[in-house]
Design a protein around this nucleic acid. Structure first.
Length: 144
RNA sequence: GCGGAUGGCUGGAUGACUGCACAAGUGUGAGGAAAGUCCGGACUCCAGGAAGAAAUGGCGCCGGUUAAUGGCCGGCUGGGGUAACCCAAGGGAAAGCGCCACAGAAAAUAGACCGCCCCGUAUGGGGUAAGGGUGAAACGGUGGGGUAAAAGCCCACCGCCUUGUUGGUAACAGCAAGGGCACGGCAAGCCCCGCCAGGAGCAACGCCAAAUAGGGGUCACGCGGCGCAAGCCGGGUUCUUCCGCCCAGUGAUCCGGGUUGGCAGCAAGAGCCUGUUAGUAAUAACAGGCCCAGAUGAAUGGUUAUCAGAGGCCGCAAGGCCCGAACAAAAUCCGGCUUACAGGCCAUCCGCACCC
RNA sequence: GGCGAGUUGGCGGAGUGGUGACGCAGCGGAUUGCAAAUCCGUGUACAUGAGUUCGAUUCUCAUACUCGCCU
C-alpha cells in the first residue's frame, strides 16, 4: 500500500524548519495499526518500566509533525484501570523527554509493562527514557 | 456492656507546578457499581397493509405498582431461628405419557418374604397386615376397645378429603357437619392450564467524500399456462385468510462486489434536587429550582505539599518512622437484577448480662 | 460496544438423571541378542459455587475462563 506522492510535496523539508513542539497535537499521535506494526519491526530497546520502539520514516511517508509517538498497553498489563494508568504515565514521560531528545522524521512507540510501568518512581522512569533514547539512536547493525 | 438482625449513606479534603478532551462563555469533565450483559424498555431499520393461528421461548401463590419486566411493595402459605428477622421457580400429579437405580416380598393394578391365627397335619387350604427387615420413599399416625389372629371393624385426639358457612378484593384463614382414608414422589422430565413475546440491533440507521466489479433495482412498453374467443387456471410476495402488488423480453435510468475517512445518530432525559399532598408501602400527582462527560489506538491526568481518618513497627514513657488506600473506569440512553469492594458513619429493632 | 458458542485425564474426543467409552501419549510386563512394531495390564478427568432431586457430568441459576461473528 503506497500513498499517492503528489498531494504532499516535501513533508520533511517543512518539518525541519519548524521549532520542536513542546506538546503534542492530535496529528503527532500514532493511531493506525499499520504504523505500530512497522515500528515493531524496527529498533527496540527494553527497559524495566517500558519497551521503546523507534523507526525512521521513509521519504514517501508524509507527516504534519516531525516526530510522531504512539502508546500501547495490551491486556497483559491488566484491566482497564491499569492500562489507562500505564498509558498516562508513559505519555507524561514522553512529553518531558521526546521534544528534546527525539529526532525529526522518527516514529516512537512506548509499550507498557505489567507492573513496573505503574509502580516505578517517576524520576527513575524519566531517566530510563533518556537512556533508552540514547541507546536506540546509536548506530547498530541491522537486525537479521 | 456483649452478641446479633434490617435498612440507608459515604467512596478522602484543600492547595501548588504542569498537561489532556470537549466547548468557545466567567466553562465542564467517570461510578456506586461506569462491570457482568442476566432481564425490561426508549430509539432505528427490516418483514407490502389488516386480522388470525401455529411453532418456539419465557413467566407462574394473591393483590398492587410501573413505560415495561422475571424488578419493586404489601399480604398468604410452608420451612428455619429463643427473638428481631430470614429463605422459597410457591399453578396442575383423580387429561395423559414417562421415570423411581441398588436393596426389598412389593415402587403403584396392587400384592405378601420372615411372620401371626384357624382348619388339616410330611406336603396343604383359608384369614390377616399388628411386628421384623430393605429403601430416599412402603397405601393415614398415637392410644384404647375389639378379635382365633387382625383390620377405621369401632371410639377419642391429630392429619386428610368433601360440603356448608363466616371474614377477606383475593391467595387463604376460622368454625360446623359429614366421610371412614382414597389421592406415593418427580412437572428446574415430556406435558396441561393461564399470561406475555414479530425479527435484529447505535458496529442499528442516514448522508458526504474516496474507491472498483459487471451483478442488481426502478420506470415505460409489455407479460406465465390452456383456449378460436369470451374466459378459466397459475406462481411469487412471512404460516394461513382477505385486500393490494408483481411475473418473459426490450429500452431508458439508477445503484452496484470496494473502502474503512468525515458528518450525523449523540447528550433536556420515563433527568436531578427540595418541598407538599395521597397511599401501610412500592409509587403517583403538584409546586419551585437546576442543566450535569461526550472520547473513537479512545480525554477526564502526572508530580508534589498540608490535613483528616484508620492501621502497622520501635519505645517504660515523651516521642519517632512507615503506609496513606478497596473494587473498578463512560462508549446511544434509561429502569432493574447480579457480582466485586479498604475504611468510616447513621437509624430502627432483638436476645443476654448488669445497674437504678 | 453488541451478539453467540464452549469448558470431560497430558492431548484429542463420545456420553446424558443411577459412579464415564474410545484413540494417542505415559508407566510396568511379555516378545527380541537390542530396539521398532505387536500383545497384556495400569494410573490420571466432568471449570468453580449454589439450588432442584433419594441421587447431578447431565436439569436450573450465578461466577470464572476460552473462542468465534458483526464496522
Amino acid at each position: 500500500m503506497t500513498s499517492p506522492e503528489t498531494q504532499q510535496a516535501d513533508p520533511n523539508g517543512i518539518a525541519k524548519d519548524a521549532p520542536p513542539a513542546m506538546s503534542f497535537s492530535a496529528s503527532s499521535i500514532l493511531r493506525k495499526r499499520a504504523d505500530f506494526l512497522k515500528a515493531s519491526r524496527a529498533r527496540r530497546q527494553v527497559m524495566p518500566g517500558f519497551i521503546l520502539q523507534a523507526r525512521q520514516r521513509g521519504a514517501d511517508e508524509p507527516s504534519v509533525t516531525p516526530i510522531r509517538i504512539g502508546y500501547t498497553c495490551s491486556k497483559k498489563v491488566g484491566n482497564a484501570v491499569a492500562r489507562n494508568r500505564a498509558k498516562r504515565r508513559l505519555r507524561e514521560i514522553a512529553r518531558a523527554n521526546i521534544p528534546d531528545q527525539g529526532k525529526s522524521g522518527w516514529d516512537y512507540v512506548l509499550i507498557g509493562r505489567r507492573l513496573e510501568t505503574a509502580t516505578r518512581p517517576y524520576q527513575i522512569l524519566l531517566q530510563d527514557l533518556a537512556t533508552a533514547l540514547e541507546r536506540i539512536h546509536a548506530p547498530r547493525k541491522p537486525r537479521r
